[in-house]
């Protein structure tokens, strides 16, 4: 039962994050109306969970309820909205998220003990254990013999980013070309709509966070559609790790739009059952995405690019 409540809360929190992303992307001002139906369409869920998410946002004074009129934006400060969402994420039952966030921002080390985490977060050992088990199920931490817990490497350095693309270049086209690849058409419809909406956003207002969320949703959909169970499992775990790493969100708006168009072309090919073509398009897409900026430049020297280049 407790687990079910937790799951519901996290899904409402996720929706609340999506709604705030919409507020920020559209540059909505104080007093603008937030119609439930429009949000329901944008997020691809019914109005009931949308209401719960709106209540969460109301509790943080990001929006306000007006009798018989509905919900309205009550702050247009991006700073305040971001802080409020972070506070929600950091609620007691999101301890796993806080640990993950702190690890991804290198505030805590790779090896951790339950007692050290309990001290840092001022909470009980049981709460920490529960959070670590959640992260363990996601494949993000592993319990070592003894009392230590080890985080998986994050995708947060030139070498790890190269390795991530190297792996994805092998597995994602394979996920598509393996026998038994099958897409859930309802999910395709939802992610396609999100991508098309993203392409409507002016480049100067493009949100890197929204891009990453849709990007991972698309690539996870490809992974879970694979007929090869081992490829599916490896890719889904890796995409969760990418989500957790929260780094590498720094491509300019032009490339974000271009990448979204490449996603749509892959889906178009899959709709036409041209899986081999889609697999090749995936290779091209990942090769483009894997081009890295030089790490250091100086007059008269070839730029520094460490690690392998897929």
């Amino acid at each position: 039962m407790a687990r079910s409540k937790r799951t519901h809360h996290q899904s409402h929190l996720h929706l609340a994050q999506q709604i705030t992303a919409l507020i920020l992307e559209r540059g909505m001002k104080c007093g603008e109306h937030l119609p439930e139906q429009a949000l329901s369409d944008a997020c691809g869920v019914s109005r009931t969970p949308i209401r719960s998410a709106l209540k969460l946002l109301e509790s943080k004074d990001i929006i306000e309820w007006q009798q018989e009129k509905g919900y309205f934006v009550s702050t247009d400060s991006a700073d305040r909205i971001t802080s409020a969402i972070a506070e929600l994420e950091n609620a007691e039952d999101s301890l796993a998220n806080r640990i993950l966030l702190d690890r991804s921002e290198r505030r805590i080390g790779e090896l951790q003990s339950v007692s050290a985490l309990a001290r840092r977060y001022g909470t009980s050992r049981n709460s920490v254990l529960f959070a670590l088990k959640v992260l363990s199920q996601e494949g993000i931490v592993t319990q070592l013999p003894g009392r230590a817990w080890a985080f998986q490497p994050m995708v947060d350095s030139p070498k790890s980013a190269s390795e991530s693309f190297e792996m994805r270049l092998m597995l994602e086209p394979l996920a598509i070309s393996s026998a038994g690849f099958s897409l859930d058409q309802q999910k395709v419809g939802l992610v396609r709509k999100k991508m098309k909406d993203f392409l409507q956003i002016e480049e100067t207002r493009t949100s890197a966070t929204l891009f990453q969320r849709i990007d991972i949703e698309f690539h996870s959909l490809i992974a879970e559609s694979s007929g090869n169970r081992f490829v599916r499992s490896a890719l889904l775990t890796h995409h969760r790790l990418r989500q957790a790493s929260k780094k590498g969100l720094t491509v300019p708006a032009f490339r974000m739009h271009q990448a979204m168009e490449e996603h749509l072309e892959i889906l178009d090919s899959l709709d036409r059952k041209q899986n081999e073509l889609a697999a090749d398009q995936m290779t091209v897409h990942l090769r483009r995405s894997s081009i890295r900026r030089p790490e250091a430049t100086n007059r008269g020297i070839s730029p520094l690019i460490r690690g392998s280049r897929p």
Binding site: E105, G109, S157, S160, K247, T250, L304
Partner: peptide, 22 residues
């Protein structure tokens, strides 16, 4: 911190590191 994020650990709570910023 450019491409050297993995050179840092125990980052203080009031500091955020990134390899590239707009």
């Amino acid at each position: 911190v450019g491409g050297y994020l993995d050179s840092y650990d125990q980052v203080p709570d009031n500091v955020f590191l990134g390899d590239w910023f707009p």
